[in-house]
């Protein structure tokens, strides 16, 4: 099962490191990363495979949220299906 992680906020050192550490600890594989500055806001989007995750989805979401709070960013994880259903026929 795939999920999309979005990180939105001010750019700083160590964002990818912090997020990928949580993912590695949880056994989540990163499939794709892209990052860009959109309307002056740092935006990182990760596609991850959560089939091997050791935590359940809501714990994972909470941990990422906490990491985000620590860095002053908003970090969100959502199942990929929502984006597919909204933007692909």
């Amino acid at each position: 099962m795939k999920a999309v992680i979005t990180v939105i906020g001010r750019d700083k050192v160590g964002i990818i490191a912090a997020v990928s550490k949580v993912l590695a600890d949880d056994g989540i594989n990163i499939l794709d990363i892209s990052q860009t500055i959109m309307q002056n806001v740092f935006t990182m989007i990760m596609l991850v495979d959560i089939s091997g995750a050791s935590d359940n989805f809501s714990d994972m979401a909470k941990r990422l949220e906490q990491v985000g709070e620590g860095l002053g960013l908003s970090i969100r994880i959502q199942r990929e299906d929502i984006f597919n259903s909204m933007h692909r026929i």
Binding site: T6, I8, F83, N84, M86, H87, R88
Partner: peptide
């Protein structure tokens, strides 16, 4: 993969 613009649009 869904592109970044679409993902950000949904989140917005």
């Amino acid at each position: 993969m869904i592109n970044s613009f679409e993902i950000i649009e949904t989140i917005k």
